[in-house]
């Protein structure tokens, strides 16, 4: 192959990548549209008459009618649908059935708390799980140390079986109630982040570290790691400079939906720690049957998760481009 063909090869790869980007974005938009429609139907159909069930059986009929009018629920369904879509484009996520307050405002107040919690926990997971996975892989490579392997898989299986909310409950009992060491609830300062972040990240870290170990074992068998060994580099250089970056892409590919899952997991953790994020509002709205809020928040959650997944995919494909290109060209 001459240099010129390799250049044209990478240009072809560029087009392929653009196509990939368009396909992914298109798929995301379709998914978003499905969610919007489902959310729209939720408000109109859930439990017979959502307004009546939200305001309660004792509410005056005239109040219910007024609220229906305000929500536009008396228009033909198709008109309502387009009104709703138009509203979404203006950034209007609807209003609470019970209080009539704007959902967009609620989101702008509460979203940062949720994103902070999930984002920090995500970072913690990666920072803990990847080095642990790599370390255990280094120890257990080849055929030795079956004991380490067994203990590691056993312990991580156990930790991964502890749901976030349960760990949260245990943490509250041990640290906040028994030891009085940390704030029990709410978002009051740096210390108040500690327990919720731990609750949200520990079981995810356990499962990701298992994936990371498997990926690292694979990477350590790769030819370029042997090449690095042939240069008699210090061990840390072989592992951190040569193995780690390659293993990271592979780990992220498999653990790619992790961030989305953590955002969902934050719903539970918020509940346990009284964390003033979207999750508390979401669960509260479901139990009080305020489907106006449910509708809006479901959209927000879906959008966050879809966008996050798209971003992870794009970052990965960028990282991966040079290697996947080789396979196809």
């Amino acid at each position: 192959m001459t240099p010129s063909t390799s250049v044209s090869g990478s240009r072809r790869g560029g087009y392929r990548w653009l196509g990939f980007l368009l396909r992914r974005t298109g798929r995301m938009l379709v998914a978003m549209w499905v969610i919007i429609t489902v959310a729209f139907l939720v408000l109109r159909m859930a439990g017979g008459d959502p307004v009546r069930s939200a305001l309660g059986a004792t509410a005056d009929e005239s109040v219910v009618q007024a609220r229906r009018e305000m929500l536009g629920l008396n228009d033909p369904l198709i008109v309502q649908y387009f009104d709703y879509l138009a509203g979404l484009f203006r950034g209007d996520l609807g209003v609470s059935i019970i209080t009539g307050r704007s959902v967009t405002e609620l989101v702008s107040h509460r979203l940062p708390a949720t994103l902070e919690l999930a984002g920090i926990a995500f970072l913690v997971v990666l920072l803990v799980a990847v080095p642990v996975g790599l370390g255990i892989a280094i120890i257990t490579q080849g055929n030795g140390r079956r004991g380490v392997e067994t203990v590691f898989t056993g312990v991580t299986a156990f930790i991964a079986a502890i749901p976030e909310y349960l760990l949260g409950v245990v943490l509250v009992i041990v640290f906040a109630i028994t030891l009085h060491a940390f704030p029990v609830a709410g978002r009051t300062g740096p210390a108040s982040y500690l327990l919720p972040v731990i609750a949200l990240s520990v079981s995810a870290a356990a499962s990701i570290s298992r994936i990371a170990r498997i990926e690292a074992l694979q990477t350590l068998k790769d030819d370029y790691v042997r090449t690095a060994r042939s240069k008699r580099l210090p061990a840390w250089m072989v592992y951190f400079r040569h193995a780690l970056p390659n293993m990271l892409t592979a780990t992220l590919t498999i653990g790619g939906t992790l961030l989305g899952a953590m955002i969902a997991g934050s719903v539970l953790v918020e509940q346990v720690f009284n964390w003033p994020g979207l999750g508390m509002a979401f669960v509260g709205a479901i139990t009080t049957k305020d489907y106006g809020i449910v509708q809006g928040l479901a959209l927000v959650y879906a959008a966050i998760i879809l966008v996050v997944n798209l971003l992870v995919d794009l970052v990965l494909s960028l990282l991966d481009r040079r290697t996947s290109l080789l396979e196809t060209s």
Binding site: A264, G265, I286, A298
Partner: peptide, 10 residues
């Protein structure tokens, strides 16, 4: 891509 919990809650 949708987490279990979110689909379940809807």
């Amino acid at each position: 891509a949708f987490p279990v919990l979110l689909v379940a809650m809807l």
